Simulated scan of single mutants.
Amino acid sequence: MQITITREYHFDKLSARFPFLEYLPEELRRHSGRIFNRDERTTEDYQILFIGKSGYGKSSTINALTGHNAMQTSDIEACTKDAFTVEYSLNAQKTRYLSFCDLPGIAESEKTDNEYLALYENMLYHCFCIVYVLRADMRDYTRDLALFRDKLSPYRARIVIAINCADKAEPTSRESTDLTGEQIDNLERKRSSVSQIFHMPKEQVIYYSARERINLDALMHQIYNRMTI
């Protein structure tokens, strides 16, 4: 499987957006990352994998978190088995990297799930966080639950269930992009429901909107928590 690096930055760019990440490079030193060969160099990578159905916002979530339009926000990745990443060097020597990795859409069918996840097995085993993207306006979790049961159960402690499109929660409003009190109440009920359905702690379920940049701090904070357990 080919991993395509779309952008590379220094970690300072990310910690400027999320100051609570300041000590992440030092905290990750306690762990061994995934050995990766890049440009005739061997580096140690700490990967965050973004998984979910095509069109649910994996690419736009990475763009929102990093502050760069590095990922194409179409369904083109559903036609390839390649992974695309945004990289942050964690030291001046550029031997350690934090990687935001966008995987092709899954949970579409058992056949494609088995095919993709067989390719990603090594990445899943070595990753430091899995961000599993759902949508606030979805109700059918049949394939997602099967995927959790059959493939992702060993990694539950490192999973964040990220409920995108919080701005689409009922009752929607055309007058403002800010969430109303009623929307927040409904989203909190959605968090509780998803937590129970997937048998995940509620703290590992976060609602947000990549498009409207809503609750990104909470999402990034939970990713930080999963990476440093």
Rank of each mutant, 00 (worst) to 15 (best):
T95C: 08
T95W: 11
R96A: 09
L98Y: 03
L98C: 05
S99I: 12
C101P: 02
L103E: 00
P104I: 02
G105M: 09
A107K: 01
A107L: 07
A107C: 12
A107Q: 02
A107E: 10
A107G: 01
S109G: 08
S109T: 15
S109A: 11
K111P: 00
K111L: 12
T112R: 15
T112Y: 14
D113S: 08
D113H: 07
D113I: 03
D113T: 09
N114P: 03
E115I: 08
E115D: 14
E115V: 05
L117A: 11
A118E: 14
L119F: 07
L119W: 06
L119N: 13
L119D: 13
E121K: 15
E121R: 14
E121W: 06
M123N: 04
L124N: 02
L124P: 01
Y125R: 05
Y125G: 00
H126W: 00
H126C: 01
H126R: 09
F128S: 01
F128L: 01
C129E: 01
C129Y: 01
C129M: 01
V131D: 02
V131P: 00
V131I: 05
V131M: 03
Y132N: 04
V133N: 06
V133Y: 07
V133A: 03
L134P: 03
R135T: 07
R135Q: 12
D140C: 11
Y141K: 08
Y141I: 08
T142K: 13
T142D: 10
T142L: 10
R143M: 14
L145H: 07
L145K: 13
L145P: 04
L147P: 05
L147A: 10
L147T: 07
F148N: 08
R149D: 15
R149T: 14
R149Y: 14
R149H: 15
D150V: 10
D150K: 15
K151S: 10
K151W: 15
K151A: 11
S153K: 11
S153F: 04
S153V: 10
S153N: 08
S153E: 13
P154L: 06
P154T: 06
P154V: 10
P154A: 09
R156N: 04
R156H: 10
